[in-house]
Amino acid sequence: MHELSIAEAVIKQLESYAGTHPGCTVKKVTLEVGVISGIDRSALEFAFPLALEASSLDKLALEIITVPVSVECRDCRAKSAVDKFMLKCASCSSTHVKICSGRELKIKSMEIEEA
């Protein structure tokens, strides 16, 4: 539900980059969005162009990399992917696991064009 805020936060950072790098135009941004970040990919894809329109930036491409949930077992140290969101080690079934990935909400990279 807060995908528009997220889109606006991304654009604000891109604007700030463009502001400190005169002559640079951002052509594409790549985001990493974890499965349990609370962000819905399609809602973000919908919100992004709307936020872009209200910004000082020209049209640019959005790429979203979805990051699956993975855990590390505190008992057997195995690392495994989590299918449904039941935190459990795939190797020994222990529930004493820590989350290694899946919460990401990151700007991974950009493509910029220099005049």
Binding site: I6, A9, V10, K12, Q13, Y17, K27, L31, L105, K106, I107, K108, S109, M110, E111, I112, E113, E114, A115
Partner: peptide, 17 residues
């Protein structure tokens, strides 16, 4: 055609918050 450059960011989207 113009020059494009790849810039690694690795930044939290909510870094200002």
């Amino acid at each position: 055609h113009s020059e494009t450059t790849h810039v690694e960011m690795e930044m939290n989207i909510l870094s200002e918050n």
